[in-house]
């Protein structure tokens, strides 16, 4: 997220140039701070309700009305998506398209609807909200020279590109991986807030990044970033690792086990 408008510690050391934008010079710039209750989340395979819990506080001497947005992003995963197309009366899969840059998990938690907190442009710049995620299908784009104009970006998906992109978001949303939660951040006391983010079974493992952003008057005025690690543990995880790291041993062992069960069952049910 190099394109974030505010570096993480802008709240402590505001650049002089921005000072006039924050209305009253007499009030010190607000500060947001946040902490995760657990930065290393272990997800058991048979779990119910693994969650990221985050506490934070807004320090603002002027007590201006504040909104807090928490953006949690999982590690980036390429997305392979296909579309059913009708060919000779049959509905079949089209050529798959690969999107890159999409987070494997995304939550935008806030204390009220994002659209009420800031305007479209601000949300887009911050990537706040599932409509503002930036990812692309690089393999579908190429730069070429057309009509003598150099470096024209041509997208092979043409006008359907937006449909494909929104389908990625829609399907990830249906899988519980992308969500906006407009009540995900709750102020529990004056300036003190709590955010709780549930992890679904399909949440990817790896390093997650949580951006906690303080909005005042529709503008992001302070930000904190926290990272956390999501690990899957337990017997099922061990099986998954084994099946992918040593597939042949796993396959042989599974088959030997299955045949042994079949044999044992026939012995158990033998009537004579």
């Amino acid at each position: 997220m190099a394109d974030l408008p505010l570096p993480p510690h802008v709240a402590e050391a505001p650049p002089a140039a921005e000072a006039p934008q924050v209305r009253a010079p007499e009030a010190p710039k607000p500060i947001i701070s946040a902490a995760l209750t657990d930065a290393n989340i272990q997800v058991k395979s048979n779990f119910r309700g693994a969650r990221i819990v985050l506490y934070g506080a807004v320090f603002d001497a002027a007590a201006r009305p504040s909104d807090v947005v928490v953006l949690v992003r999982g590690p980036e995963q390429p997305v392979r998506i296909t579309r059913k197309i009708q060919v000779a009366g049959l509905w079949i899969n089209s050529r798959p398209v690969v999107f890159r840059g999409a987070p494997g998990f995304y939550r935008a938690a806030s204390n009220r609807p994002l659209a009420d907190i800031a305007n479209f442009g601000t949300l887009r710049r911050l990537g706040a909200g599932i409509d503002h995620l930036t990812f692309a299908a690089p393999a579908e784009q190429r730069v070429e020279t057309r009509y003598g104009v150099r470096d024209v970006v041509v997208n092979q998906l043409g006008a359907d590109y937006y449909d494909w992109k929104s389908a990625v978001v829609r399907l990830k949303e249906a899988a519980g991986l992308y969500r906006e939660d407009e009540h995900g951040v709750r102020f529990v006391d004056r300036g003190l807030f709590r955010a709780e983010i549930a992890l679904p079974a399909g949440a990817p493992t790896g390093v997650y990044r949580a951006d906690i952003i303080l909005f005042q008057n529709g503008k992001p005025v302070a930000q904190r970033t926290r990272t956390l690690t999501v690990q899957k543990v337990g017997a099922e995880r061990a099986l998954y690792v084994l099946a992918h790291d040593r597939p042949w041993s796993y396959g042989l062992a599974s088959m030997a086990f299955a045949l042994a069960v079949g044999w044992a069952a026939s012995a158990a049910f033998r009537r004579d």
């Binding site: 099946a243 396959g251 042989l252 599974s254 086990f257 299955a258 069960v261 069952a265």
Partner: peptide, 26 residues
């Protein structure tokens, strides 16, 4: 096939197969 599917495609779920087996053999 089972060994090849596991080795080449990593698509054999032993937990699933075992659950099916428990009912299946009976």
């Amino acid at each position: 096939t089972g060994v090849l599917q596991a080795g080449r495609n990593q698509t054999v779920d032993i937990v699933l197969a075992t659950l099916l087996l428990v009912g299946g053999v009976m």
